[in-house]
Structures are given as C-alpha cells and as structure tokens.
Amino acid sequence: MVRMTAIMICAVLAGCQAVPGEGPLTADIKKDAGQSPTQIGRIDAAVFDIVNVDNRTAKLVSDYVATALNRRFGFGGGAGRAVIGVGDQLKISIFEAGADGLFSTTESKQTSLDVVVQQDGTAAIPYVGSIRFAGKTLEEARQEILSSLRSRAVEPDVIVSSVNTASRKVTVSGAVGSSAQVPLGLVGEKITDVIAKAGGPSGQPYETYVTLVRGKKTGTALLSSVIDNPSENIYVQPGDQIFVARDPRTFTLLGAVRANARINFGASDLNLLEAVALGGGGNDAAVDAKGYFLFRYEEADIVMSLLGRQRFNELLSKGMKPDRLGRYPIVYSFDMTHPDSLLVGQTFPVKNRDVIYASRHTSVDLRKFLALIGAPIGIASQGAGVAYNLERISD
C-alpha cells in the first residue's frame, strides 16, 4: 500500500500539469511575478509583480485611495485668487461729495455703470477711458478707477461689484440633475458646491464617480470619498470640467471559494475580508490559506511607493505596460494562516473591478489525479495527506 502511494505521488509530481484546475496555483503566480515574457515562455504574457500585504502596505494603499484628487492635483486647500476675466459683467457705482460733479446731480450723488470686459481685457469708463480689468481683483479694479477719478471728480469713491462671471465657469455634466455651466463665486467653490448647483448627483454617493479635468490633468474619485475626506473636496478653478458618472462598483471573486461571481459592493467602502465573505468565503476543502491574491491595475504613484523606483524601472524594462489610464498591474498577496491577516484584511480597501482569487491547495490536484487514474479511495486519501504534509514541511 505504501509503495503504491509513493508511486502515485511521484506520478503526480511528474505530471500534475495534466490535471484540470480552476486557475493557477500559489507557486505558479509567485513564479511568474517579476518575469519578462521571454522568461515566462509566452511573448504576449503580462509583466506584473507581487506585493505581500502587511500593515504598512495596507495603510499606504488605503491612504492613497482616500486622497486621489488631492494627490493628482497637488493641492486641497485654498480657493486661489479670484480675478476678473474676459466677458465678465461688472457694476461700477461712482459717488461724489459735490452736487455738480461729473457723476452727480442735485438729485443724486452717485451714478451706476454696467460694463462688460472686452476681448482685450479692458472696459471703458466715462471721463476716464479704457481701464484694464482682466487679471485684477475687484478691489484692484476699484483702486485703479478711483485713482483715475481723483483729479476729475469731487471727492470720488467707487464700488465695483460682479454681476455675471462669464470667465469663471465650470462645466458639470453626466449623472446630475441638470448638466450646466456653473458660474463660480468670488469666494471660491468646491467640487460638491458646483455639483449641487447642477442639481446634485442622480445616484448614491458610494456608486458615483467624479472626474475632474483641468488642462492636461485628469483625476477620478468616488463621490463618497470626496464627502468623507475634506481634503478631497478641493476648490475648483475657472475652466474646469467635472463629469459625474453613476457606476455601481463590483469586484470578481474566483478560485477555491464557495461561489465564483461578480459581486456588487452595496456599500460606501469594502475591505478584503468583507469581499471574500460576500462570496461565501473560501472552500475549506480546497483553498490554500496562503494563496489569497488581489489582482489590480494600480496607480503609478502607489506602485513606485511599494516597489521602489529601481524595481519599478526594472519591471518597465522587462515589458510591464500600463492600461489606458496609466495604471500598472500589481498582485497583492495575503497569507491567511497568520492571525494578523484578519487585522490587515480589515484595512486593505477593495476597489472597483478588482479580481480576488483564492488559489486551490496542491493536495486538490493530487486527489484529482488519483481519481482520474482510478486509484482506490484509501490510497487517494493517503496520498493527498502525504502531499499536504510535504508541502507544510517545505514551507
């Protein structure tokens, strides 16, 4: 019996690749990590790397997810300097102390003028001429008009107010109440302010994405993240484009789990343990507890922070390619045999379109092989047990 079992094990070790399986084994994934297509043996193979998740990794990824817009645009605080621009409509009120001045009569000691800033950035003021308004604040424009009137009017004073800020508009479109060009106030407005002016989002914040386009930069964040993290609710600038999209977040669970499926988040956030639990958890009779993996195209900043610039450049030289959004393939590895994995798994965030894969244990392939060749049940069980113990010893 022992001799036959040994023969069976040797046969499996020599030819287990012929056994059907539900995806790669843990060893296969780790073997291909960091290898070039030539080393893997397929010219079209994707180049990726593995990151073993610990407390530091989980915190780094979690912190980045919560501050995507802040990091992308490099700021999150000030409203900036609100200035007058071309096309803005201004109301200029001029007061004089005397009754017979340039702008006053016996009935009124003030005159109000409505002006529109022209393409050259100027507007004409009676008895003053052309004044340059573009690029100035309201106070700066007031001081310039006042300075020009002091030698002409009787103890003049001036008030400049904004009527229509045509140059200070943000375009908001997509899954909002009403797509519109939203005028910005002079005090500065944030992302949630302008979305509210466009009628608010049509979906729940946890399934709504906000994309901000500014010049050549583009950043996307979950609306619930913008709401929960004040640093993400950044000030918008004139000319910004904001696109709001409703996209229920999903992840895919595959491998040695109770149910292979594409699953909706159904919540504002989701961690790794919750995601696995939504699919019914791992299959105790098949799963390799050391082989839980999360496949993701990750932001370049995170990849460099995790791997280091030298390793990142090495992978690029081997052929690692970004997706259309400039993100790079990374596989996060979780060893569930360690007690602290239950803590780390709670802090590691799952993102939209992630693929979570639970590798099967090597003993599963042995049982399949022995069953295929018609080995007696007792020998099959004994052989699987021996293979399982051999693996534990090798680890």
Rank of each mutant, 00 (worst) to 15 (best):
V65S: 13
V65K: 12
V65H: 07
V65T: 11
A66D: 12
A66L: 01
A66M: 01
A66N: 08
A66K: 14
A66I: 00
T67E: 09
T67H: 14
T67M: 04
T67D: 07
A68G: 02
A68P: 02
L69P: 04
L69H: 06
N70W: 02
N70S: 12
N70A: 08
N70R: 11
R71M: 05
R71K: 08
R72V: 13
R72H: 09
R72K: 15
F73A: 01
F73S: 04
F73N: 01
G76C: 10
G76A: 14
G77H: 12
G78V: 05
G78W: 03
A79S: 12
A79T: 05
G80V: 08
G80D: 11
R81K: 15
A82K: 05
V83L: 05
I84R: 01
G85F: 07
V86W: 03
V86R: 15
G87N: 14
G87P: 07
D88F: 11
Q89I: 07
Q89Y: 04
L90S: 10
L90G: 08
L90K: 05
K91A: 06
I92Y: 02
I92C: 04
I92W: 03
S93L: 02
S93R: 09
S93I: 07
I94P: 09
I94F: 12
I94S: 12
F95H: 15
E96G: 04
E96P: 07
E96M: 07
E96A: 05
A97T: 10
A97Y: 06
G98I: 00
G98L: 01
A99S: 15
A99Q: 14
A99W: 03
G101H: 05
G101T: 06
G101P: 11
L102M: 12
L102F: 11
L102P: 04
L102Y: 13
L102K: 12
L102I: 11
L102A: 08
F103W: 05
F103E: 11
F103S: 09
F103A: 12
S104H: 09
T105Q: 10
T106V: 08
S108P: 00
S108H: 14
K109R: 15
Q110K: 12
Q110L: 03
T111S: 15
T111D: 03
T111L: 13
T111N: 04
T111R: 13
S112W: 02
S112E: 13
S112Y: 04
S112A: 13
S112K: 09
L113D: 07
L113C: 06
D114P: 02
V115P: 08
V115E: 10
V115I: 14
V116P: 01
V117Q: 08
V117T: 10
V117R: 06
Q118H: 03
Q118S: 09
Q119S: 07
Q119E: 05
Q119W: 00
D120N: 15
G121F: 01
T122C: 00
T122V: 00
T122A: 06
T122E: 02
T122M: 05
A123Q: 08
A123C: 05
A123I: 05
A123N: 04
A123R: 04
A123G: 08
A124D: 08
A124W: 03
I125H: 07
I125W: 07
I125E: 12
I125C: 10
P126M: 06
Y127E: 05
Y127C: 07
Y127S: 09
Y127A: 11
Y127H: 13
V128Y: 03
G129Y: 03
S130V: 01
S130C: 01
S130I: 00
S130F: 06
I131M: 15
I131G: 09
I131P: 08
I131R: 10
R132K: 12
